[in-house]
Nucleic acid binder design. Sequence first.
DNA 1: TCCTTTACGATACGTTCGTATCCTATAGCT
DNA 2: AGCTATAGGATACGAACGTATCGTAAAGGA
Lengths: 200, 200
Amino acid sequence: MPKVVDRDERKRTIAEALLRLVARQGIEKVSVRTVAAEAGISAGAVQKYFATKEDMLAVAFELTGEFLVRRWADIDAEGPFIEVLREHIVAALPLDEQRRAELVIVFAFTARAAAQPDWARRLQRDYGDAHDLTTRFLRFGQSTGEVRDDLDVERLADLVLALTDGLSARLLHTPLLRSPQHDELLASLDLALHELLAPR
Amino acid sequence: MPKVVDRDERKRTIAEALLRLVARQGIEKVSVRTVAAEAGISAGAVQKYFATKEDMLAVAFELTGEFLVRRWADIDAEGPFIEVLREHIVAALPLDEQRRAELVIVFAFTARAAAQPDWARRLQRDYGDAHDLTTRFLRFGQSTGEVRDDLDVERLADLVLALTDGLSARLLHTPLLRSPQHDELLASLDLALHELLAPR
DNA sequence: TCCTTTACGATACGTTCGTATCCTATAGCT
DNA sequence: AGCTATAGGATACGAACGTATCGTAAAGGA
């Protein structure tokens, strides 16, 4: 047998290089050649792992989901419900370079979804999953009395997701570490969570 | 003097062709040649009015703002405050092909802003204006007693903008005229506006 | 040790891109 | 009527793109 390589890890390495490139230069600078250079390999090597550029972007998109889930796993689930939920939302916001790159990918694909039905389906599925997860989480909050139970959790889940995306958009307009604006937006998030979820 | 043409109207006509193209094919299909074809003129003619492709996209972006303002002007400002505000928000949501194209442009530029400081500044200015406008509008609502006055209007304005963008993202994942999801998202919007703004 | 299989790089090909340049037709002024 | 400045089209050019193809080095099984 020939030289053996962990193909999945290799693909991940290249996709991570793509994310770094997006963070630094934006998604329009992504090409097979630029990603290869960022990864420190040849364009031919990239082609070995990704048949098309589209494949490459798709894996990078998947990666953003994995990174988010990994960040969620590090969150301490103890404590008041609303604070735990807040931490999960913050984990998705573009507050450092890594998350900015992820959000750029997500927004670029959102724009793309409007005209490409296959990507629309894919995003709808992912957001559907996120919606289900959020709904179940909110129902749990209701069960412990930490979330008001007079509102429809499905609608509340829509609002949590919308706020996350909407605040992400605003944060992407802001240079990294422009903390006054960041603090204001996070204060707005806290206000929304309190007014929408806290029992009265 | 030579043949005379209203240059601004010509630029607008071309930018509108660009928006139609974005609606149908997505922003990555935008090129000087494809826009020219959509506008029914030659690529050379497009170059007469736009020095660079970037200029062309910038004008198309400005156009999205103009279209929004024009839709706002058609809204009946009479009636309950929250319903009027709701109409202004709905006017920004991608619920038809025209608005979908506009939102694709906005999202694409949002993604671009993360790596291009000049575009970040421009979007921050535009969103700053929208934030000011919303703040003043909410303050007016407070003055008539239709908006609760125990919350910071600046933070509420953040939330209105974030909800608008976040719901727009979700709507872009949905094919046009998939009305059950649309209705649910609009119901979520109504819930948020009522819970965040209505006096209790 | 030789052979097979794969990783990876190098190179090539055709297309499309943004942009520059040139040409011609025409509308308005003197 | 003739001149001139501009609109608009045609064409050109170099760069960058996605992708295909070929060559080479090396690692493991026989």
